[in-house]
Design a binder for these strands. Sequence first.
DNA 1: CAGGACAGGGAAAAATTTATCCCTGTCCTG
DNA 2: CAGGACAGGGATAAATTTTTCCCTGTCCTG
Lengths: 121, 121
Amino acid sequence: MYQKKIPEVLDCGIAVAVKVIGGKWKAWIIDCIRRGVARPSAIHREMEVVNPRIINLHLKELEEMGIVYKEIFAEVPARVEYRLTTVGRSLLPVINVLEQWGNENKEYVNGHHAEYILGNN
Amino acid sequence: MYQKKIPEVLDCGIAVAVKVIGGKWKAWIIDCIRRGVARPSAIHREMEVVNPRIINLHLKELEEMGIVYKEIFAEVPARVEYRLTTVGRSLLPVINVLEQWGNENKEYVNGHHAEYILGNN
DNA sequence: CAGGACAGGGAAAAATTTATCCCTGTCCTG
DNA sequence: CAGGACAGGGATAAATTTTTCCCTGTCCTG
């Protein structure tokens, strides 16, 4: 893994939350697992546009942060399943809020808003 | 500005939200403005650990996304103030949720949790 | 005038994240 | 046995973000 040269600033709650879901594909991965897409290969299939290697890296980070848990079954063709930890599940409402806001405002944010909307402030 | 070579995937609401607050200092900047720290130099003072150049870049992005609005007063030593647009203000509850989750879980996320917490799933 | 606050940005480097390529294994099925 | 699914990772490149350094102006105050 990459060794950081600039120490992270993680006293702020927002920074912590962004660290957890700020990765390019992390939220999507969490969403997969929450929907029960648990096995690595299944996640890879779901997220076909993303390189499997990347997904694995993100999964490892999520595991190290205690968001997902990796269960390795002692079966013959060793099976692996990811699931959310308690803390990981506590993240779901947060993701829902993000998703809702994003969906409500995606056109605006990406759009050509020469017209800025100002309210009373 | 940097010209992207890989097109962004912004159909997903989460991706949009992360784009808005995922930058390293964006949420902090938004927090400054929401607290009324409006002038560039004031924001720079608040965020002393961050290079002013970076703050300016992030401000520009936030402006382009329609989250903040830049008001240039036609005064003699041209004064500039940033404030949140309506959409920018709609982001505040979202940030609050992020911040609360982060504060509640920062020790856990950064901590040495060899002990993964699993609930019923 | 000297110095500092103020707003802003170019150029280039460094740091970090993301992506690509390809390899090592095991096991199961046809 | 051949091929494919499965889990995983090293090495390296590319893309993106962040940082540093330094420059251009205006205006105001001592």
